[in-house]
Write a protein that binds this DNA or RNA. Structure first.
Lengths: 240, 240
DNA sequence: AAATTTAACTTGACATACAATATTATAACA
DNA sequence: TGTTATAATATTGTATGTCAAGTTAAATTT
């Protein structure tokens, strides 16, 4: 079991992380009103029975995310709602099937818009790259290999082609965080081979973007993602 | 790094923030390959001529955002791309007009999808709240007051009505971060009075959601946001 | 009562020490 | 020589103490 020795696998949370978790959840349920003072580092140090070092690192996280504001000399104060500085998906429970459906839905919203824009703004290289990823997928399936990587590349090429940098950045974040959960095209990577309709759906998307047909591209990827969700037993967009 | 310590300058970010900025930008241009070791805290402390405390708080930020991974006993390593843990909009330059257009666009994508879903899933209270915000806006304009707050509430009620918690959470983040920049309906809050078409656009959206007409709701809010962008001299969705 | 001064408190930053863990060099052994 | 056990070293995690800078609130003075 050599992989057990691989670093960064059995990571135990640092004290500051645990403290930050607790304080963040307390702030979330608004136990202290925005604008009011937060307990001092000394008080928290005494309450959690850890050093001020740990408390400071925990508070640094909350400040970094915009949950607290601090000035030298004065106590930290609870920030107003709406001053959030980061969007995170860490604290989601993957057990809830409905929640996963909403994630699918969120992805479908962004990717369908990306496909529509990609059809309008694609460069010459975008279709070439898409075709390349399609062929890689096809070959991988033929060889009974994992086609997930090429699949991800295909979808990422679409948001790349959309030309909107925020769309692209957000989908990169989204992918890294939860693509393994929302693996809508998991069919590609299981060992039973690729359902022919999946590859066909990909081809339809590719053709629409290549032909610069915005509406068809949007419809095609919407269909693709709705089908992919249904293959996982999930319904999105109230599309029975 | 003596220039970092200028306490007489007002609004001086903390040392750890400045160091984190520098290190983050260095990581962004991939000066160190993913998987490779990052300089130790002692080295960085020496390089920046600050205490290890400052370095630790700076590194804590990078780890929190998933740019670095660390384990006790070993050097921190640069994380793989795709392990990003947070989506941020802090480091955007508001001077670039094209970039603001992409922000408008991003918002329009999410809100149009939200409106379409809201028409399907709205509760009984949602139209009531929307109507209330409409009236507040109308009254504010009539009294030559700022209608921005009610305007924001109106749009937020739509994403609330969409039923998708991620859509809602993200728009809350988005609003707090950049709504003042992407104030697409600024017309409502300036002192020259409300362009009649703006309130009319709002009414159209409200009616469509109330009538549970998904397609009209999407079209109406898309038109509204495209118009709002154009009133600010910005074109989105390549829609001249 | 109002203004000013002083004291106490709080966060920002630094220095040091030690514990826990990983890596590397060394020694022992086959 | 090559392999393995062991010791030395390096690195992060945590604790403690100190001081500086700035804010708040009480005390004092006018």
């Amino acid at each position: 079991m050599e992989f057990l020795k691989k670093p960064h696998l059995k990571r135990v949370p640092k004290l500051s992380e645990q403290v930050a978790e607790i304080l963040a959840s307390e702030l979330e349920r608004a136990s202290i009103q925005p604008g009011e003072a937060f307990p001092s580092e000394a008080e928290l140090s005494e309450r959690f029975e850890v050093s001020r070092t740990v408390i400071r690192e925990a508070l640094a996280r909350l400040k970094y995310d915009g949950l607290l504001e601090s000035r030298q000399g004065s106590k930290s104060i609870v920030a107003q709602p709406g001053s959030q500085r980061a969007f995170r998906l860490d604290r989601l429970e993957v057990t809830d099937l409905a929640k996963i459906g909403y994630l699918y839905e969120f992805r479908a919203i962004l990717e369908s818009a990306a496909a529509a824009l990609a059809a309008k703004r694609r460069s010459q290289e975008n279709p070439e790259n898409l075709r390349k990823h399609l062929e890689t997928m096809e070959q991988a399936v033929k060889d009974h290999l994992d086609a997930t990587a090429a699949n991800v590349d295909f979808h990422m090429e679409i948001v790349e082609a959309s030309g909107n940098p925020f769309l692209k950045d957000f989908m990169h974040f989204f992918r890294g965080k939860i693509w393994d959960l929302v693996q809508a095209d998991r069919d590609c990577s299981n060992h039973q081979g690729l359902p022919p309709e999946v590859q066909q759906e990909h081809v339809t998307i590719f053709k629409a973007i290549s032909a610069e047909d915005s509406d068809i591209a949007r419809e095609a990827i919407l269909t693709h993602l709705i089908n992919a969700a249904r293959r996982s037993g999930i319904t999105i967009f109230n599309s029975e």
